[in-house]
Amino acid sequence: MSIELTQPGCELLSAQPVVIKNVKNYFHIHTYGGLSPFFAGLREGKLLGTRCGNASCEEQRIFLPPRTHCPDCLSPSVWVEAPTVGEIYTHTEILYPGAGFKLTTPCPLISVSLEGVCTKMMSYLKEGQPRIGMKIKAVFNMEHPTHTILDLAWVPA
């Protein structure tokens, strides 16, 4: 009995120095864990943030992106619906994205300012030309969800 290769070998790209092409093809199983309500919410057209569950904590504003625990007092958070109308805090246009980007380019990238929310989450503008201060509203990709942050986008309000 002799031991044989069961997979193709590496392609030789250069003889001197010896350079080979090592092809990878694998996946990760990723959990959203305690942040799952946010991603489950997107499928139902809901924008869920979190608020500190400790009434005596100084920070009572909404966090979005959500946090399972308050960063100030480490109390467990409670889930609340965040406003779905806000304005653009800043923006750019992605022209040359990195590998794995799933949207068409040029893609307007935005940071979103929402009333009562102490953070300014990153997202994208699905329609229109962004400018700072522009009023926008949330839209949800519920038809063919990607189960990623790409299922949330914004359009002019």
Binding site: H30, Y32, L35, P65, I94, Y96, P97, G98, A99, G100, F101, K102, C107, L109, M121, M122, S123, Y124, T148, I149, L150
Partner: peptide, 10 residues
């Protein structure tokens, strides 16, 4: 990876 990377990978 949850809230940013997909938005550009850049």
């Amino acid at each position: 990876k949850n809230f940013e990377s997909e938005l550009g990978w850049m």
